[in-house]
Amino acid sequence: MWQSLIETQKSLVPDMLSHMLKRINILTCIRNEEPIGRRSLAKELGMTERVLRSEVDNLLELNLIKVESKGISISAAGRQTLTDVEPFLTLIESRDDLAAQLTEKYSLKDIYVVRGDADHNVLVKEELARLMAEKLTSNLTDGMVVSVAGGSTMALVSKFLKPGFQDLLFIPARGGLGEDAALQANSIVSRLAAAANGEHRMLYAPDSISKASLELLKEEPMVREIIELNNRSSIVIHGIGDALQMAERRNVSGEVISKLQNRNAVGEGFGFYFDADGNIVHKVDTIGLQLEDLKDKDAIFAVAGGSGKKEAVKAYLKLAPQNTILFIDEVLAEYLLG
């Protein structure tokens, strides 16, 4: 609902949102630097003193700031206003400035950054999913096969995906996980297909089995079909996970947990656990896509949000193929640029 309202406002009165963001930036700067003089505030914001004077007068009239001899400070009402608006900022404006800086630093196909921290604002995760759905749609064509991994953000993408293409096919990128069924790839591909008026296939295979059982299972016709479809899929969408959190979600053995801890695993993707330098420290034997398969795809849509995934994302970028399109939040972007 909020996203729809904001998009309508952008269409009808785009100046209103830009003006609101300007005032939010002024209030934020005052809060961080108070008390601050007009000249210093204008310099900090990159505004002329004449333009700033008008904004300060308006904010003073609205009782959002206080102007005293020692400088400008924020009022209780102004502080509460910033608190109230902060959860919705991610829906108003993306951090294109951070994305541009990251694009210069990392050789990826594209990077998108939304405001906020997904660990502290549920709307940030929804915005990441919405943005991924929007960019995925712009890359789809009739008859395309899309490989899909599991995860909480992946589960939200179907909420924003719209029909518009013929004969789309969504398939699980790998075997099922030992976690909540709603977060497994089998569940997510069915929801994506329903949203896009496409088709989907299921992969009835455990995430981790013995090598002998794995080879036998690969000979099953339904399983062999999924393997072949993954080999010719054009797009892969997946999340980037924290190593120990993902291991616990999948109910792995205590022996594997100890191994991950001893080898300083920080991140996980497609059943591969890696350390801060991007070295693979543990691999789950599973049916489906492998990391080495990703470089041959048209695009890899990778998403992560929240300060808890800082190390995981930083390490993953040492493994990510150049055809990766990365979706992250502001807190991760600032960490990667630090």
Rank of each mutant, 00 (worst) to 15 (best):
D285V: 08
L52V: 08
M20S: 11
M1Q: 11
Y106A: 01
I74K: 05
I111F: 10
A265L: 12
G306R: 00
R115T: 08
A42G: 01
A133I: 03
T103Y: 05
L332T: 00
L336K: 06
D329C: 10
F165H: 15
Q80C: 05
L82S: 09
K283E: 13
A193M: 08
G239D: 01
N231F: 02
D275V: 04
T153E: 13
A243T: 08
N251Q: 15
Q322N: 15
R31M: 13
E334F: 03
F274D: 04
L289Y: 02
R232T: 11
S190H: 06
A247T: 01
D180R: 14
L12G: 03
A302V: 10
E199M: 08
K125V: 01
A76N: 11
M246F: 11
D296H: 14
K22N: 11
Q3E: 07
D15M: 11
D285P: 15
V157T: 03
V51Y: 11
S107T: 08
K66C: 12
V281L: 07
L319V: 05
V122H: 07
R50H: 09
L217M: 15
N197H: 03
L12N: 07
S234M: 03
D285N: 15
W2N: 08
A129Y: 01
V252H: 05
V157L: 01
N231E: 13
V157Q: 01
I325N: 09
T137G: 08
N32G: 04
A315L: 00
Q184W: 00
A195F: 04
E311L: 12
D15Q: 14
K259E: 12
A42C: 06
K310A: 02
T8Y: 13
S233T: 03
V266T: 13
G46A: 07
V113G: 09
D242L: 03
R174Q: 14
F327Y: 14
K310H: 12
N186M: 07
E330I: 11
L128K: 08
R263H: 14
A76L: 09
E219R: 10
L59M: 03
M144A: 12
P206I: 03
D277Y: 12
E127P: 03
L136T: 08
G288T: 00
R249A: 12
G71Q: 01
G164W: 15
L294K: 00
T137V: 06
K318H: 07
E49G: 13
E268R: 10
P321C: 04
Q184M: 03
P35Y: 03
T103N: 09
M222G: 03
V284N: 12
